[in-house]
């Protein structure tokens, strides 16, 4: 689902979206909620109430409450009055919504970005996508576990530089 384009939008809406750029994911602080595609909509109502719509990466993502608080804090400091944060499940978030700049920021942070057009996740063993080591760039990598330090990441290791790394897994 494409995000609202900023072209032709009124300047006060541009400013709102730019202000929201300051809100980052508490677990991956190099990414903004816009980079991640978690920020689905932001609008200013007739009564000046700001409504921000976000969506979780995973059902149990514990960062959602903190992101909501951050949105309210950042907008409050920017002088906005009443702020409502809505959480929607539909359409379901996908790693495809990660922006190109977000993918590059992830790599620089040491997390391999999600593969594009991944193979079936129902296949057992050996059906993992090709993942490039974010440290040395080698493609000689292997999965250690499909579940990692947060819901959205898997544990991988590099057979070239022998370093372990996080992989932002496809969903």
């Amino acid at each position: 689902m494409p995000l609202q384009t900023l072209e032709d939008s009124p300047p006060e809406l541009d400013k709102l979206w730019q202000t929201l750029e300051a809100v980052v994911d508490p677990e991956i602080p190099v990414l903004t909620i816009a980079d991640l595609g978690l920020l689905r909509d932001a609008e200013i109502g007739a009564d000046e109430t700001v409504t921000v719509t976000i969506t979780p990466t995973y059902s149990g993502c514990p960062a959602m409450n903190m992101i909501e608080q951050e949105i309210k804090r950042v907008l409050g400091e920017a002088g906005y009055g009443a702020v409502e944060v809505k959480t929607v499940l539909h359409p379901a978030w996908t790693t495809d919504w990660l922006s190109e700049s977000g993918r590059e920021k992830l790599r620089a942070y040491g997390i391999a970005p999600p593969a594009k057009g991944s193979t079936s996740k129902r296949a057992l063993f050996g059906a993992e996508p090709e993942v490039t080591c974010p440290h040395c760039g080698s493609k000689e990598t292997e999965q250690v576990s499909a579940f990692g330090s947060t819901a959205c990441k898997a544990l991988w290791r590099c057979r070239s530089c022998l370093e372990p790394f996080d992989y932002f897994k496809c969903i």
Partner: peptide, 10 residues
């Protein structure tokens, strides 16, 4: 369900 099925697949 659209959210859950992605997780349950894993």
């Amino acid at each position: 369900a659209a959210k859950s099925v992605k997780e349950v697949t894993y």
